[in-house]
């Protein structure tokens, strides 16, 4: 969850600048998530776990990734939900 910075709550101009920056950053980020749809994505997870899957969607709070054809060390799981907190980073080609 996010909150306003103390400075921006006191100063309306500062608040507007912060809102504008947050909007730009969030719109760009959501667009990146949408660009991942149906792409093959590599997940780098904790405990040195690396898996590949086809990206489906994520919830807007960034808690879960919904993926298909997840290649796990013990086989392919057709449909899976990956916890964002298990993930360090993910990589894909665009």
């Amino acid at each position: 969850s996010i909150s306003m910075s103390a400075a921006s709550e006191a100063d309306p101009e500062e608040q507007q600048r912060e809102q504008h920056a947050r909007t730009t950053l969030r719109e760009r980020f959501l667009h990146c998530l949408l660009a991942m749809t149906n792409k093959k994505v590599q997940f780098h997870m904790y405990e040195k776990v690396k898996v590949e899957a086809t990206f489906g969607a994520s919830d807007i709070d960034m808690l879960h990734f919904q993926v298909s054809d997840l290649h796990t060390p013990i086989g392919v799981q057709k449909e899976a939900l990956i916890r964002c907190h298990d993930v360090i980073s993910l990589t894909f080609d665009a």
Binding site: L30, V49, V51, G56, Q66, Q77, A80, L81, H85
Partner: peptide, 22 residues
């Protein structure tokens, strides 16, 4: 985006992987 996520989950019934959080 949330609608897509919810719809995909309804339709595909994905299971957590890994089962236990890392």
């Amino acid at each position: 985006m949330q609608l897509t996520f919810d719809r995909n989950c309804d339709r595909k019934q994905p299971k957590y992987w890994p089962v236990i959080p890392l």
